[in-house]
Nucleic acid binder design. Structure first.
Lengths: 232, 232
DNA sequence: CAAACAAATTGGTCAGACCAACAAAAGGAA
DNA sequence: TTCCTTTTGTTGGTCTGACCAATTTGTTTG
């Protein structure tokens, strides 16, 4: 009974999927083909276990996975319901695990969003958020990981923008950056330079000058970019 | 033995967390306090079950959850390892479930990233991706949900940008949009107008004209924005 | 008819078992 | 000794079956 496959594993190079992953795929397929729709109730776990010929534990792990993706929602004593057909996280997670994100792309992305973020922060930042940003600037950068402070600075600004989408986008970029494991090597004088630009950015945000904040951030990222990809 | 709480549920308004959620929190706390670090191996599931005084199933559901968040990674016959201390998805998921994202913020975000996306697509789109975009344009918009086609158009362009970060960002915006359940009411002539702009954008991308693609997308979003928030 | 109660449904949790992949230790051949 | 094979133990993956607890549904009772 405990045979290996019920998914067609035709491709030879494909690794064996875990049972619960196969179940996830089957359920997602049902969603995409319209067998189940948003708002519907999934069959009870015990029924699913019977129809898929797997144990209830596997069904539960599959449901947990789908729930974490924001696709379903379980209500005790009631049932499990579909709340969305599409996962919120697929592309990035895949790209990260497959190491398909490169430093250049991350900088491309940052240059696109961070000026706008700085502008929004200039408009929306609360006093507490300003203080949080200032606190990060005052910190002494740790010897071994000097860029960590830099990252936190930018994330704090994103939080101050007041727009969760921007915040999330920058967090994604941060996660991708950590994944690449490329440690940007900064010379001391350049770190100095970068630090003074941080001050400029902060001042513009604190002053509520949107246009200036955008410009400063743009300039800053241009410098970082050139530091990373300079051919000198 | 099966008592309710081992998490301090002091707040009266707080709902009872499931066991596995409590375990997730505990493990995340260990990460943040540095008890466990990136690269470390987690204790075996059986040990965790013993130390947390819960069943192994609950531990497994917790690990499944952490894995789905990209925090840990399980290797059969070897152990479970920490691959990142921060979740890739938390802020957005929270904001979405708490309905704290507004249409204005979504448009703010789209206006910041989509022109850049269009430019990248103009540079990087493969013939297949171009065809996919064209196919979407050719579709007849469904009577009940005319905006769905529009969303797919923009997402297809994001995919053609070749940068997973942009793709993810737009998917997030899409998810947020679906969550708001605000149905943009379009008059027929405006839909016409929007459609012709889609053609412009597509042509610019197909021609590989980055600057033009950016401009067209910018113009398009400005129109959409005014359609949504016009006071007339 | 409405409120109170009882039963069935369903997700949440537990316990213990066996399988399969992997790693380290043990053993043997060169 | 050195290298390869074998064995053994650890650990995640899966199954089974049981009981708990929230929720819905149907029934009884005032």
């Amino acid at each position: 009974m405990n045979k290996v496959s019920f998914a067609a594993d035709s491709a030879p190079t494909q690794k064996q999927l875990k049972i619960y992953e196969q179940v996830v795929l089957r359920i997602q397929e049902m969603l995409h083909t319209g067998t189940i729709n948003v708002g519907d109730k999934l069959p009870p776990e015990r029924d699913l276990a019977a129809t898929f010929q797997v144990s209830r534990s596997s069904i539960r792990e599959a449901i947990r996975s789908l729930q974490e993706k924001g696709i379903v929602e379980s209500r005790r004593g009631n049932g499990t319901f579909v709340v969305s057909t599409t996962s919120i996280i697929e592309p990035l997670a895949e790209a990260v695990t497959e190491q398909r994100i490169y430093l250049l792309q991350i900088m491309e992305f940052r240059q696109a969003i961070e000026p706008a973020i700085a502008g929004l922060a200039a408009r929306n930042a609360t006093p507490e958020q300003l203080e949080a940003i200032a606190a990060i600037m005052k910190e002494k950068a740790p010897e071994d990981k000097p860029w960590e402070k830099d990252i936190r600075f930018h994330c704090a600004i994103a939080k101050a923008s007041g727009n969760p989408l921007f915040e999330q986008a920058l967090v994604n970029a941060k996660a991708a950056l950590e994944e690449t494991r490329q440690e940007p090597l900064q010379s001391p004088e350049r770190r100095e330079q970068s630090c003074s630009m941080h001050k400029e950015i902060y001042n513009a945000i604190a002053a509520g000058n949107e246009a200036l904040a955008e410009r400063c951030m743009h300039k800053h990222l241009k410098l970082v970019h050139s530091m990373l990809f300079s051919t000198e």
